[in-house]
């Protein structure tokens, strides 16, 4: 038993951290967010490194590594709040790998892995919490292909076949859209497993978002002085920061456990994915919101960068359902039986 990254995984983490720090500095994040745009040349560099297909099998044109490796990358992408097509594309590829037919895999996985095509995902109908409801589809306005979860499982649709409307979400670091009706070709495989794997990928990004917001708050609490003392020396502030660490570490432990289980112990994945979906969403939101409180007034200004992490955490934490819905699923799997979907609070 060894709950730590391998040397190879640590190397991937180091490369990703450096890449993100060099290319997605806060001023770059702001520039892209204010333009609501991606930098295609940067995505091309990520594709060159094999990132969109890191968890896609070599037969399908990917790197043949696992969900842990993808989680490592997405944690760093969340840490940088990098505007890019990585989550939509790698996320769609996870679902196509788990649920796609041989033809669907052959058509889309090599192109997603190489960066030639980009992907999107979202849900409609009861899978999104209401009859005609659509979730905010991640990356759809810019994507070539989308995974659509519906009541029966998952469909695969070229973006041109979907009737969608771009939405300006509060998170300006990514593109989003809603769809008016399900469309596309049914994926015959295990859509539930695909959705669970995707949930872990999102949780990894949320973990990185929380980590960065905590570091920003701690750094500020060390330097900002009021009443002639660093505010981080007051327990009302330092204990707030300690609570951030608790949340972020719970999120990280559950993320890497679920990522490991997806590949090594798939029977544990449904519960692991439901647990981390709820915890990672709450921890990222609570941490970014608590960081804003540490910053005080300055954190509430448009000029301050924290807003990008705060807003992304709120949207990413609800892509596949609310934390309340995920907890209801946890309760079911923990032995309380199925609840009524209408009864699950947000």
């Amino acid at each position: 038993m060894n709950f730590d990254l391998t040397d190879e995984q640590s190397e991937i983490k180091g490369t990703a951290k450096q890449f993100m720090a060099d290319r997605f500095k806060p001023e770059k994040v702001r520039e892209l967010a204010e333009a609501r745009a991606y930098d295609d040349s940067l995505y091309a560099q990520m594709a060159e490194l094999g990132w969109p297909g890191i968890a896609v099998s070599e037969d399908d044109g990917g790197q043949g590594l696992g969900l842990v490796e993808l989680a490592v990358l997405l944690e760093e992408a969340g840490y940088a709040c990098a505007p890019s097509q990585l989550l939509g594309s790698a996320g769609a590829a996870l679902v196509i790998t788990a649920a796609g037919s041989p033809e669907q895999r052959a058509e889309w996985l090599p192109r997603l892995a190489s960066g030639e095509a980009t992907g999107a995902f979202g849900a409609i109908g009861p899978a999104a919490g209401g009859e005609d409801e659509s979730t905010l589809f991640c990356d759809l306005p810019t994507a070539d292909v989308a995974v659509v979860f519906d009541a029966e499982g998952a469909l695969l649709a070229p973006a041109g076949e979907l009737d969608f409307e771009a939405v300006e979400a509060i998170d300006a670091t990514r593109s989003y859209a809603t769809i008016s009706a399900p469309a596309g070709e049914r994926m015959p495989g295990d859509a539930g497993a695909g959705r669970d794997r995707l949930a872990v990928a999102i949780a990894a990004e949320l973990t990185g978002i929380g980590q960065r917001a905590m570091e920003m708050a701690v750094e500020y609490a060390r330097e900002r002085k009021q009443f002639d003392r660093a505010i981080g020396s007051y327990q009302a502030v330092s204990h707030r920061c300690a609570a951030m660490l608790l949340g972020v570490e719970e999120s990280r432990s559950l993320t890497y456990y679920a990522a490991w289980a997806a590949d090594a112990e798939p029977e544990s994945l449904p519960l692991a994915a439901a647990m981390v979906s709820a915890r990672a969403a709450d921890a990222a939101w609570e941490t970014t919101a608590s960081a804003l409180q540490v910053f005080g007034g300055i954190g509430f200004t448009w000029e301050h960068d924290l807003q990008f992490w705060l807003k992304r955490s709120r949207v990413a934490g609800r892509m596949l359902g609310t934390p309340g819905e995920h907890r209801d699923r946890v309760a079911e799997l923990a032995g309380l039986g199925a609840g009524s979907a209408a009864g699950a609070p947000a």
């Binding site: 719970e250 559950l254 647990m275 907890r327 209801d328 946890v330 309760a331 923990a334 309380l336 699950a344």
Partner: peptide, 9 residues
């Protein structure tokens, strides 16, 4: 159910 899930997690 929500609270039981919080404990489980």
């Amino acid at each position: 159910r929500q609270r039981i899930a919080e404990f489980q997690i």
